[in-house]
Amino acid sequence: MNIYLKIFVREIKVSMKRWSDILTGVIMFVLVALIFPLTVGSDQMFLIKIIGPVMLLSALLASLISMQNIFKPDFLNGSLEQLTLSHHSLNGLVLMKILSYWATSSLPLVAVSVFIASTYYVTGTSLIAVVITVLLASTTLVNITALAAALTLSVRYPGALMTLILFPLSLPILIFGSKAIEYSIVGIDSSGPFYFLTGMMLLSFSLGPIATAFAIRISLD
């Protein structure tokens, strides 16, 4: 089996065994998203208006709460240093880790977002727009989170620091993601924000793993 595929499968398998971590992220996502209707009231017009920011904010908070899980366990048990000592491209291996982390931490969010959007009275094609937005935004987010996690690997209590690193870098995604959802619901041409999100996804997947791999080498020094 190809080594990269092998690592991808291994990571998926390990994440499945750490299912409680996956669940933590999903629970965070659902709770944040459901707090809004419970606190601001269930006015349909208002909920439709805030669904965009709410979705992206929930995704950001969910990734913030579970972002330690991407490298920290491997850092502690030593398999991360084995990864850097392999003669395969560390960038490629890190890309596989990011992809598998995305598949296990963000794909469940994408699935759940359908349910949440419908509780916000979103229907029809707008529902698809919400799902695609969360899908695209989470790919960029996962790269930013991976970088932030790798940079703070050797910091003992990185909570606030991670937030500080994550927030400015993910701001464009939050803005354009919210717009993508808003435009689709209102019925304006939403291709612009979607193009932007796709562009950011490509940019983050091309630069993210390289920067993250470099950060891992630094943190292991």
Binding site: L151, T152, S154, V155, L161, L164, I218, S219, D221
Partner: peptide, 15 residues
């Protein structure tokens, strides 16, 4: 903050 949180100077610089 990142620089200050990493105890070793060399590592903190690069990160």
């Amino acid at each position: 903050l990142l620089h200050a949180s990493i105890r070793e100077q060399k590592k903190a610089d690069r990160a």
